[in-house]
Computed example of a mutant assay.
Amino acid sequence: MKGLTTLMLTLAITGCQARPQQPPTQVVYRFDDHRYLELKGWNCEGELWFTDAQRSIHTQLYFQYYRIFTRQLIHPSERYIAVPSWEVTGFRVSRDYGQTWQVAGFSPGPNELNGMDRAPGEDALSFTVVNDQGFLQTKHSLYTSSKPFEDPRILPGGPGIPFVSEDGANHILEAQYPGEAWGMVYMTKLGLEQNTAQFKTNWQDLPDHVPEVKNYQGWDRMRCDMNAGKAK
């Protein structure tokens, strides 16, 4: 009987030791005192969550495999939130304070002088989101999203936008086929020259430099502890 009791105790202890440990959760970025990003996972890779404590918003951006953006990140914007990943192949963006999320990418076409349609991740220097507009600065180019509104001419029932192509032909950018919504695509001025978005008012008079941000209260980079959750 004593031997049976010892065996049961050993099995119980072994079972406890074999029980999988929950992955750690850590804050990897703070926009301000009430908005932040949390990463849940081992070795700084996993799920990514957004929280706005003032608006009672808690939503998930990435469900697995997210790795933090390691360059400078300045993000005072509140309505429009854009979050890049380590590879900078695109962005998770929200246009409603973080309640819902969509995937934004780079405009097809030659954004880079070598003909690439997107920014090489190793060239990224900084990402700034201010006044509901995103600015990705690379070693060679500035990528921007559009200004945060739609051209009324391509809204439902609008007259469309007349334009003349390089061959002199007359065209209309119809409201039925307006292209990407505001904030959903990033491109350089080179890419804009090859895109009908150039005729929309929200893509005109874009800056040549990242706007200056003053009195920013958030973090200027994402932070992550590779050893979070591991035994010391």
Rank of each mutant, 00 (worst) to 15 (best):
K147W: 07
I81Y: 03
M222L: 08
V185P: 02
R67G: 11
Q102W: 11
R221S: 12
H171A: 03
K139F: 09
A82M: 11
T14Q: 12
L136C: 06
R71L: 05
Q204W: 02
V93L: 09
V93R: 00
T89W: 12
Q54P: 01
V28R: 03
E180F: 13
V129L: 00
A124E: 04
R35K: 12
S107D: 13
E87M: 13
D205C: 01
Q60A: 03
D33T: 08
G15R: 06
T51I: 10
R95G: 07
G134N: 07
Q133T: 08
P24R: 08
E38N: 13
L173Y: 03
R221M: 08
V213P: 00
L73R: 05
E47C: 04
T128K: 08
Q217R: 13
L4C: 05
P156C: 03
D151E: 01
T138I: 03
H34K: 13
Q99E: 12
C224H: 07
A231K: 14
E78S: 10
W182F: 15
H171S: 04
G168M: 09
V83A: 07
Q137I: 08
D205M: 12
F106A: 02
V103R: 14
G158W: 03
Y177M: 10
W101C: 00
E45W: 04
D123Y: 11
E112T: 10
G3Q: 15
R67C: 04
V129R: 00
Y65S: 14
